[in-house]
Design a protein around this nucleic acid. Structure first.
Length: 460
RNA sequence: GUGGUUUUAGCUCAGUUGGUUAGAGCGCCUGAUUGUGGUUCAGGAGGUCGCCGGUUCGAGCCCGGUAUUCCACCCCA
């Protein structure tokens, strides 16, 4: 077999033991909060039927779905005439009928519809699994990354929204982040804008343009609106709210005036106020983390109510989480009338931020607690006895597998940050006492088996 | 998908107008120390210069293609 130079596929990464230790720390912290708020874990397959995923993420989104090539001689099933008449888009379903999941929300909707008779509404689930996107990689943007999703389906109460704000706040605070904002908006407010200028069909174009405010500025947004077919009068109505500043309350007051004649807009404001009120009631400390931001649009086509996005001000890495309410997600799979709301954490971006800010706890990469050295073959029997004795008490212990120089074995323990090393050789065999070395202080003491266990238990 | 950028030892990076044998720090191995790591000292190994092709007497350096990295768009976690 020809030698292949080893390399990773674009946008993917290996995770070392140290990185896994840190990644698991993030998952552990987030999962604990999810459970605390009554959510239960599920998992869904890495890949779904292609038809389950297509059409859910918009034109651009569909292009980013990783398709899986059919097995077998799929070419023979496509006649030359058919091939000649096809486009890349029409050919795809003939070549591929499976695809890697693009997010966790659509598979969840599929799950809810398929298991509708077993689940207990309102259904509160969380899911922490990798997703794949055929995007061009950048800092904080990978082709394989983990999302941590929490959603509740079958409850229209805005208490859910308020609790998600608390979940964001509590999780990120527990991870050591202090300077972040949970941005909130409501899709109905955006719909109100397009209603008052009489162009509801341009809602998507309007939100996409407004979304770019912090990147291209007010003039840039206006220019884009002009290109999308908004006239000067439309823009004069929208302009006062594009670069809205001030407190959340003063923003809401302005919105009330602008949207006074839009029923949907007024409903959106009312929902927004209710969410803020519930969040305040549950935990006043989250108030200062919430930022009403009407430029927040989010691309996903299915949001209908509240929209969330979390940004940290301590690192330039885009958003570390997002979510919102969708009134009709399961409708695509034939189950009407179920509303859902949920949020997602981007674990990989949170990892990058914590690493940059040096917020990972120390010693998370310690695994083995005791190493038994192996430099005298005559002591092997005793070493194996002690090894299992230590393990039986619940300590992580290992025996250096080959007889070699002590120097090398201590260097191994040092690199692996093993705090205690047991030296076992001729001397120990004669006295019946083992030598225990504290790798941090360099102190050594001779102990009987029983004293050794007592010592370890005391020092754990 | 569009435009730009990066790639040289295990890692982080130098490398002059194209000119003999491509360097440093860290890491690794050996020894000082045959039962003692993290410090110190001495020595050593390790490179088809991302890959393919071209120009040239001669290419790490110039040109074309390709992969990859990062950046700006698009979009998003």
């Amino acid at each position: 077999m020809a030698q292949i130079k080893p390399s990773l596929a674009k946008g993917t990464r290996d995770f070392s033991p140290e990185e896994m230790e840190r990644r698991n720390y993030i998952f552990r912290v987030i999962k604990k909060v999810f459970k605390k708020y009554g959510y239960q874990e599920i998992q869904t397959p890495s890949f779904e039927n292609l038809s389950t995923l297509t059409g859910k993420y918009g034109e651009e989104g569909d292009k980013l779905i990783f398709k899986i090539l059919n097995s077998g001689d799929f070419i023979s099933k496509i006649s030359p005439e058919k091939y000649a008449a096809s486009t890349a888009k029409s050919l795809t379903p003939l070549l591929s009928e499976k695809a890697l999941r693009y997010d966790l929300t659509v598979p969840f909707a599929r799950y809810v519809v398929m298991h509708q008779n077993e689940i207990n509404l309102p259904f509160k689930r969380f899911q922490m699994q990798p997703v794949w996107r055929a995007d061009r990689p950048q800092r904080g943007r990978y082709r394989e990354f983990y999302q941590c999703d929490v959603d509740v389906i079958g409850s229209e109460s805005l208490i859910n929204e308020a609790e998600f704000i608390l979940i964001y706040h509590e999780s990120l605070a527990n991870l050591g982040l202090t300077d972040f904002h949970i941005k909130i908006n409501n899709r109905k407010i955006l719909a109100g804008f397009s209603e008052i200028i009489g162009k509801p069909h341009l809602l998507i174009d309007l939100t996409v343009a407004i979304d770019k405010l912090d990147k291209i500025g007010v003039e840039g947004v206006i220019k884009e609106m002009e290109e999308k077919g908004f006239n000067a009068q439309d823009i004069s109505i929208i302009r006062p709210i594009i670069d809205l500043t001030g407190t959340n309350q003063s923003k809401i007051e302005t919105l009330k005036k602008v949207l006074a004649h839009s029923e949907i807009g007024k409903l959106g404001i009312q929902e927004l106020e209710t969410v803020l009120r519930y969040a305040h009631k549950l935990n006043r400390l989250v108030d200062s983390f919430i930022e009403v931001d009407i430029t927040l649009a989010r691309g996903l086509n299915y949001y209908t109510g509240s929209i969330f996005e979390v940004k940290t001000n301590e690192a330039n890495i885009g958003s570390i989480g997002g979510g919102g309410r969708y009134d009709d997600l399961t409708g695509m799979f034939g189950l009407k009338g179920l509303t859902g709301v949920g949020i997602s954490f981007g674990a990989d971006r949170i990892y990058d931020v914590l690493l940059e800010l040096n917020l990972f706890p120390e010693n998370t990469n310690r695994s083995t607690e005791v190493l038994i050295t192996n430099f005298d073959i005559k002591a092997e029997d005793l070493a194996l006895d002690i090894l299992q004795l230590i393990r039986s008490k619940g300590f992580a212990a290992e025996f250096y597998p080959t007889t070699t120089k002590l120097k090398k074995q201590l260097a191994y323990a040092d690199n692996k940050m093993i705090p205690f090393v047991i030296l076992l050789g001729q001397e120990e065999l004669e006295t019946g006492l083992v030598t225990l070395r504290n790798m941090k202080s360099g102190e050594q003491q001779k102990l009987s088996k029983q004293d050794l266990l007592t010592f370890l238990i005391k020092n754990n």
